[in-house]
Design a protein around this nucleic acid. Structure first.
Lengths: 153, 153
DNA sequence: TTGCGTGCAAAGGTTTTGCATGGCA
DNA sequence: TGCCATGCAAAACCTTTGCACGCAA
């Protein structure tokens, strides 16, 4: 891997990502934030290049969003985000780290009985957080959001 | 929903998707397949429009791929793909429907203890199928593929 | 006859890349 | 001094949309 210089732009980006480790950001959002912090803007291409490096270094991760058309990036630091699921609310965007023994059980079960090694850090479980779920229920009591299966349940 | 006409193009696409219910295809791949089947090509914009309708009708689903930059589409027919996880091998692309009591348990647990309603049909678990996992192990015995967490395990 | 299907081209949005210049080590 | 970082513009890529015409019902 090429050497990484410690420039102001990189540091500001890293600091910001680090300050919100449980959120995911688009490049658009990150540029806006950089602009907001100080007149010192960072151009998109530069931010893309920073993020690409940060992912290579293992400090950030790049994900596809279910709802947004752009990539989203999240700080993972040197902590271990590779070995637990993430829950992402499709309505408000909140991201939860699910460090939970029951999901470990599922992983073992899948490995043993279905012959599949799930990379939990790469897998995001989409759904509704408590707050958004209760809002949904008030608005559409008959059928859960986003379900197109035609079945009644 | 608008009425749907039964045209040759739509039927060919639907037949093909239906013949591989456990695979996901990009629009690129579907166009190539349509071209291959007979001189009758289908243009991308048309395929996009078909797929959009099929998703509305509940016959297909549109997903974001973790690895590919484009959307992928999968036939789900009238079966119920909304209520189980899918396992996707990041190497060979195979997609497995995980109808499994243990994952139901995890869903209940997450709902009860983490206050989160996971939409399992919308969530894909990425990892390695048995065949690809054993290949991986031969090639890189020290560190699992794609894990950038820096931890040893 | 009505309105959806289809192809083409253009537009829109996101990400990558080439090049020249500036800055870190 | 040697790379890497940065900004700008252009290219590349994927998806959607407008329009005109064809075809199903």
């Amino acid at each position: 891997m090429a050497r990484v210089y410690k420039t102001a732009g990189r540091q500001r980006l890293l600091d910001f990502l680090e300050s919100s480790p449980d959120r995911q950001f688009t490049v658009e959002e990150l540029c806006a934030e950089m602009d907001r912090q100080d007149g010192e803007t960072s151009r998109k291409s530069t931010v893309y290049r920073h993020l690409s490096k940060l992912c290579d270094e293992g400090l950030a991760r790049k994900y596809r969003s279910d709802t947004q058309s752009a990539y989203v990036y999240q700080y993972v630091g040197l902590g271990d985000c590779c070995h637990h699921f993430h829950l992402k609310c499709v309505t408000c965007g909140q991201l939860v780290h699910l460090e939970c023994a029951v999901s470990e059980e599922l992983l073992s079960h899948i490995a043993d009985h279905h012959g599949f090694e799930v990379d939990s850090g790469r897998s995001i479980l989409y759904g509704l957080c408590e707050a958004c779920a209760s809002l949904e229920k008030k608005q559409t009591p008959t059928h859960p959001r986003g379900c197109t299966c035609g079945h009644h349940h």
